[in-house]
Amino acid sequence: MNLILHVWRQAGANAAGRFERYEARDVSADMSFLEMLDVVNEGLIANGQEPIAFDHDCREGICGMCGMMINGTAHGPMKMTTTCQLHMRSFKDGDELWIEPWRARAFQVVKDLVVDRSAFDRIIQAGGFVSVNTGAPQDANAIPISKQVADDAMDAAACIGCGACVAACPNGSASLFTAAKVSHLGLLPQGQPERYRRALKMVAQMDLEDFGHCTLFGECQEACPKGISIDFIARMNHDYLRAVATQREETAAGGTG
């Protein structure tokens, strides 16, 4: 099939960007979307032009690098699928595709379709961990976890941090990402000691990164390639409210042992 692509080209973070028109010829329906871009890029390179920069790594839907907006939908038309797992059979001959980077103040464009998602890393650093003392690991089955809790925690942990939730949100909110990260630890017994502190810190960092707020449009859940539910946002809000209500100053007073 032959396609017409309008791709956002931007030389760097502070450069002005614009759409460029390209023709993708003889595209096989079995190609992934990224393979289609690879072929277009080979043509550009052969012509001495700058190839289209896009992020990718695993190409199997687990690293979260490959996000882009395809015809106004995050990761393209196929539900619960990353761009790398999207195949060209989702399109038809003659289609015209508008390809844009994620657009958010917190996700600066690095080049063309590549954006800087390190804001997500800083949200995780603020509290998306469980503090454990080092030493011999304890028996993995020593802490019983009910199946429902394990399943819910796994559903939240499926988040690959691709940023589609922010990209699809009319408010540019990172609520679904933050909620998934707050919840997957907050659900598990190991995450309990830091549960409320974690919610406070991660939400505070989310706000610092200039993301928007959550209106509960529901767009993030639909865009998420892992199908993470907005119920986790309700859960984060619950933990956050509880944390604010019971918060007290952290002090290091007490004996030194």
């Binding site: 907006m69 408010n171 928007g212 639909e222």
Partner: peptide
């Protein structure tokens, strides 16, 4: 929310909102 997306999309199709 406005400030969170200083450059808007050319195209963003609402899915479920």
């Amino acid at each position: 929310a406005r400030a969170a997306r200083p450059v808007d999309y050319r195209m963003r199709e609402p899915q479920v909102s």
